[in-house]
């Protein structure tokens, strides 16, 4: 029976383990990207021209560069050529380099999401903050950013979904995640390519759809009513 044969094939691989690697990549990269992206967004809305310029340049350069190049550069250039080593054993080192590549890339999208959140804050809020004597940093911290984050949940959620899917690109940094496993599976059992694809694709649907539902719910629930 073909179905049971296929299920036998599946049971020979650690699919859940491979997905777990993707989720770990996503979690670490998401935190780093959020920190870096928020800092970039602050730079881009600050009154200091040089910081604004640096933030804009970063976003424009990184957004127009393929993630695959950043990922490949990590293990072809940064590690062997420039000697950036983040851990003693190979696997951990590659994993950390992949996390950094994902964070560096998605930080530019986080920055743009937060900026679009800042744009949902009415002018009157900033004017009121200035009127009561708040300088740029206190106004940003106390008035603008709290509202901006709530307005940015939907685009941030989309960035998170993109990050989950893009964690497969870590294959270019030799991290043994799900796309590497899938390649191994179809190489060994090429006649099952379609069912293997559907199995792994459905796994992503199961991960991605709840994230989408949750962020949509949160963005409505936490929206600042005006």
């Amino acid at each position: 029976m073909l179905v049971s044969e296929f299920l036998d094939t599946l049971s020979g691989y650690d699919i859940a383990g491979a997905y777990w690697v993707n989720l770990k990549l996503t979690a670490f990269a998401a935190v780093l990207a959020l920190v870096l992206g928020t800092a970039l967004a602050m730079m881009r809305i600050s009154p200091v021209t040089s910081l604004r310029w640096a933030g804009t340049t970063y976003v424009n350069v990184v957004r127009n560069m393929p993630l695959t190049i950043i990922m490949a550069s990590m293990i072809l250039v940064l590690w062997p050529q420039l000697g950036l080593t983040l851990a003693d054993d190979f696997a951990t080192n590659f994993f950390r380099l992949a996390v950094i590549a994902l964070a560096v890339y998605h930080a530019s999208f986080v920055c743009e999401s937060i900026r679009s959140g800042v744009n949902t804050v009415p002018v009157g809020q900033a004017e009121a903050a200035r009127a009561i004597g708040l300088a740029f940093l206190p106004a940003a911290r106390l008035v603008i950013l709290p509202q901006a984050f709530r307005g940015a949940i939907a685009p941030l959620g989309n960035t998170l979904i993109a990050l989950i899917k893009n964690s497969t690109v870590a294959a270019a940094a030799s991290v043994p995640e799900i796309s590497v496993l899938m390649r191994e599976m179809v190489e060994n059992d090429a006649n099952f390519v379609v069912p293997i694809f559907l199995t792994i694709a459905v796994g992503f649907v199961i991960i991605v759809v709840p994230v989408g539902v949750l962020t949509t719910y949160l963005s409505r629930r936490l929206a600042v009513s005006r």
Binding site: R63, P66, L67, Y105, H106, F109, E112, S113, S116, N119, T120, G151, I153, A154, P155, G157, N158, T159, I161, A162, L163, K165, N166, V205, V208, V209, V211, G212, V213, T215, T216, S219, R220, A223
Partner: peptide, 20 residues
């Protein structure tokens, strides 16, 4: 209103894909 998009606001497609 798509489920996976979860779009309630202003993100353009570039934001959404993260360029993938």
């Amino acid at each position: 209103v798509g489920i996976t998009t979860g779009l309630a606001g202003t993100a353009d497609t570039r934001d959404e894909t993260g360029g993938n």
